[in-house]
Design a protein around this nucleic acid. Structure first.
Lengths: 111, 111
DNA sequence: AATATATTCAACCATTTGGTTGAATGTACA
DNA sequence: TGTACATTCAACCAAATGGTTGAATATATT
């Protein structure tokens, strides 16, 4: 439904390099909190907080197995964000072709 | 080139409802600062600051004519943002079709 | 039972953010 | 020239953000 709140949460979550890195890590598969935190030069707690932000934005889902929390990437909200971009493009028409082409290219190289 | 900094500025700029509203306003054509500020229930100064954020993100361009500053929408950075989304999708493949279709629909209804 | 591991909760702190008001700057106009 | 208008600059403020450390909770292992 793309409520402004949803869009807010999505874009706010994406507007941080640490959180984008976490998403990129998760885009290649599930991981536990500690595993996600490992490459970062900040405390585990800090990463835990970032994960909460991503979870609130529904970009990440948590599956608890015993003491381990497995996080996975949920890309659905990105579609909402894309919808906003499209709805705002207007005289952006010329750029649209480029985006469509880009999407198609990616589709070809990553089957 | 999609430096992380560029992406940061773009997404940070988009992560505020006032700024998204300003962009939407501008997507239907140029406007002066006062015109842009008029519908908002905040001070002109506050809106002026938001415009600066959008300008820093290169989502808005300023053309000065006498005492008037005309702002226009520059959608290029959105392409960078879209690139990031695409590069992170990975097992998002199924959603991609939906996005492509969406783009095509929009293209049909808004010639 | 005792200990180690995985994670969050809570309190705290510095910086950023989004807003305010009042003054300054530059341009248009009578 | 004087005055109105368009905009930014500067100082300030409250709340949010992104980080820290230390304690709490829950599960696993010995």
């Amino acid at each position: 439904m793309a409520t402004p709140q949803t869009l807010d949460r999505t874009l706010t979550a994406l507007a941080d390099p640490t959180r984008r890195a976490i998403l990129q890590r998760l885009s290649s598969g599930e991981a536990r909190v500690t595993e996600i935190a490992q490459p970062f030069s900040m405390s585990l707690n800090a990463v835990s907080k970032h994960i909460l932000v991503l979870e609130r934005a529904k970009l990440v889902r948590r599956r608890k197995v015993g003491r381990d929390h497995f996080l996975s990437y949920r890309p659905e909200p990105l579609t909402t964000a894309a919808e906003w971009i499209v709805s705002t493009r207007s005289f952006w028409a010329s750029r649209l072709d480029a985006l469509e082409e880009l999407l198609r290219e990616e589709d070809a190289t990553k089957p």
